[in-house]
Design a protein around this nucleic acid. Structure first.
Length: 280
DNA sequence: ACACGGACCTGAAGGC
DNA sequence: TGCCTTCAGGTCCGTG
């Protein structure tokens, strides 16, 4: 499901239940998600204390007291649920009838909470980073969009020389971390920039930011901040200005445009051809 | 170094 | 009632 706001909402839900607890048992109800679980996944976690529940881009990052770091990604359809009613110390079994067929991982914690990872499409990821090691996905990831370090100069530097359409570039996690298909469209609409515009056109000849880059960074930050504030629970329609609004009137004040849907890099883009024309 | 298309999965929704 | 196609909030890999 998730883009950054939903992952952050998940993090906030998991943190009070998981931080400081020990993993008594890590039950894998199948041997892979998108990829196989790493070797000794369960045994490296069992007995370990969870020191933090952090987020980087769309990844949940959980350092444990051995120095390993548990990395989790929700893919398209992953979600967690907590079962606080489980008897303290009781261990889930693989064949427990309470599980549905998409409950793939069950963490039983020392505080009696059970954390269940459900993922119908299995595009999710669970991985372990060894103490002191780096992880390719994290190492190459672009800046956190809400961090001060993500500013117009940083965005310009990432887009300099890129011929790709702006919308496609915003989905590239090397450019900025955490944007997905909804908020890339939403941020471009807020910034009044065409999703079809070539990325390098918001960069000056010297590689610096143009006013458009300044606008786009501000739009990305505010769109994400507002979504986090709403504590977006699994996606509800009706909160977006362009996403899934094909054929509807543009909601920008004074704009009479009609939202269009196009395909870019195999994914739907929604935008208003009037207030997001290529000349904006 | 790009840029694009397809692959990976299941489920929901709509057309016939 | 099917059965078929299309679409879905994300990466990753192979090919030009």
């Amino acid at each position: 499901m998730p883009e950054l706001p939903e992952v952050e909402a998940t993090r906030r839900e998991l943190e009070p239940a998981m931080r400081g607890a020990r993993i008594v048992r890590a039950l894998l109800r199948r041997k892979n998600l998108r990829r196989p679980f790493p070797p000794a996944f369960a045994s490296r976690l069992e007995g370990r204390r969870i020191e933090a529940v952090d987020r980087r881009g769309k990844y949940l990052v959980l350092p444990v007291d051995s120095g390993d770091v548990l990395l989790m990604h929700l893919g398209m359809s992953g979600s967690f649920r907590l079962n606080r009613a489980a008897a303290r110390g009781a261990l889930a079994s693989k064949t427990d009838p309470d599980f549905d067929r998409h409950d793939h991982v069950v963490f039983t914690l020392s505080n009696g909470v059970t954390v269940i990872f459900n993922d119908p499409r299995r595009f999710g990821v669970m991985d372990l980073i060894g103490a002191g090691d780096s992880h390719s996905a994290l190492a190459a990831m672009g800046p956190e969009p809400l961090a001060p370090a993500f500013d117009a100069a940083a965005l310009a530097a990432a887009l300099a020389g890129k011929r790709t359409a702006l919308k496609v570039a915003l989905l590239d996690q090397h450019v900025v971390a955490g944007l997905g298909n909804i908020y890339a469209s939403e941020a471009l609409h807020r910034a009044a920039l065409s999703p079809l515009r070539r990325s390098s056109t918001i960069v000056t000849a010297a590689g610096g930011p143009t006013p458009r880059a300044v606008r786009l960074v501000a739009a990305i930050k505010s769109v994400l901040r507002e979504a986090i504030e709403r504590q977006e629970r699994p996606y509800r329609a009706g909160r977006f200005r362009v996403y899934e609004r094909e054929g509807e009137r543009c909601r920008r004040r004074g704009c009479r445009g009609t939202i269009r849907r196009i395909t870019q890099a195999g994914r739907s883009t929604f935008y208003c051809p009037v207030c997001q024309s290529k000349s904006c």
